[in-house]
Design a protein around this nucleic acid. Structure first.
Lengths: 241, 241
DNA sequence: CTTGACCCTTACGTGGCGTGAGCCCGTATC
DNA sequence: GATACGGGCTCACGCCACGTAAGGGTCAAG
């Protein structure tokens, strides 16, 4: 309703005639025009352009459609990128909770650390989507408690098992690593208090690959283990999807 | 600038203090908050939600991020779909120009034909994106002229050559069809007065598959030739991309 | 002292309608 | 004939995240 009024106001679609009661009456022709308008509106073309479009010869339409196509494609890419970014953000937010690093288990990240992370993020992801958290104060479970020690031990067992795979030259996509990866995914599930989707699990792998604290931990286990673990996780995640 | 004023107005980000001259002064803390705002804004989160987000504990952030993620994903899918729709629209608009059918070479599509097309479109693509052209009057090159006859003859040679492939049992993805498909693509290029992108060429194949006039023409050449031709075109297009 | 670059406030414009107020109109029912 | 009820009408402001002037004050440099 309001839409029709609006289109009348801006002269995009005028009624065929108006009754004595002031009602707007639309006929065949107007309905067809409306149909077109709605279609082009679906394509996110601004109304002003639609107006020009509908009162223009066909070859102009082609041109407008091409322009619009590239706009839409850009939008599509943009949103796909945003989804990836938000995945990383989520993975980082969650990953922070389960981040197996002594520096973070101190309970609060020092400001210097924080600044360092930000510089790293800017350099890593470009300053447009620079620091995704940057809040500075990350609270995690207290270290040294008995359940936490058990969990860390479990994590170590898993990681050492996988590192053994690296040492033996087992490729990271090998199916024989699946049991360990399953255990790892379960470990993450406990850490997040929520089962990660394959996509999220792969996103966590991405974080492992990129985050200096994780790198430090994994390269400390074995050189090249960061990439090996991340690849294995992502392959496994893909097989789960 | 205006953005900062705006954020001050709505209370999203207030300056650290204001000088006697009325200037807004921002310090470290505000800059960090601004950074966060800009990041969340990048993710298309409305400012009101950002405000709530920044004044909320972390677990809330996770929730909001998940909500936003699904929103973004929907958007991404939406735009991808729109691009496909517009591709079909373009292919149809262009395909109409080069539509090798006597009915269309009459210069103007009859209203009955038009209604038929619309019904078909609605049934084919759903009424949300029903008639993509529907203008009713499509003007194409005059038939019977000498250059047009030559072009149609060339097209026929190509099509018959491909039909021979079908008869001989050559699979549509066979590389041996490439020379003919190349000629066909060139023919389309002349018809469109523009080189089709692989995507557009594949879109044209889609149109062939779906449009009754094309089907009539191709099934007239050989039964199953519509699908054969369309598949061949799409495979070839993929190899070009 | 002027120049030019920056800041301020105020206020209207943008797009594509949504939403409400207050009123009229047409149809069905009592 | 009265009365609901479900439409339509116009007028006009609201939304969101600012953009863009208009008209003026402030700051550092030449």
């Amino acid at each position: 309703m309001r839409t029709l009024h609006h289109y009348d106001e801006i002269g995009l679609l005028e009624p065929a005639f108006s009754g004595e009661n002031g009602y707007r009456y639309y006929e065949e022709e107007e309905l067809l025009r409306l149909q077109q308008i709605l279609i082009f509106r679906e394509l996110d073309i601004p109304l002003a352009e639609i107006a020009a479009l509908l009162d223009a010869p066909d070859f102009n339409r082609l041109e407008v459609l091409h322009v619009q196509r590239s706009r839409l494609k850009k939008q599509a890419r943009h949103y796909v990128r945003l989804v990836r970014t938000i995945d990383r953000t989520i993975a980082r937010l969650k990953g922070t909770y389960s981040m197996p690093n002594a520096d973070l288990y101190s309970g609060v990240v020092s400001p210097e650390k924080q600044a360092e992370y930000e510089a790293w993020l800017i350099q890593r992801f470009g300053d447009s989507v620079a620091s995704e958290i940057g809040d500075g104060h990350v609270i995690v479970a207290a270290p040294g408690t008995e359940p936490m020690q058990r969990r860390m031990a479990e994590l170590e067992v898993i990681e050492l098992g996988l590192a053994e795979g690296l040492r033996l030259g087992i490729p990271p996509q090998a199916a024989s690593l699946a049991p360990l990866l399953e255990r790892h995914c379960l470990w993450v599930e406990t850490a997040w208090a929520r089962k990660p989707t394959p996509e999220e699990y792969a996103g966590l792998a991405e974080t492992y690959r990129a985050h200096p604290d994780f790198i430090k931990r994994y390269e400390g286990i074995a050189p090249g283990f960061t990439a090996y673990l991340a690849t294995a996780m992502q392959n496994w995640a893909q097989r789960q999807a």
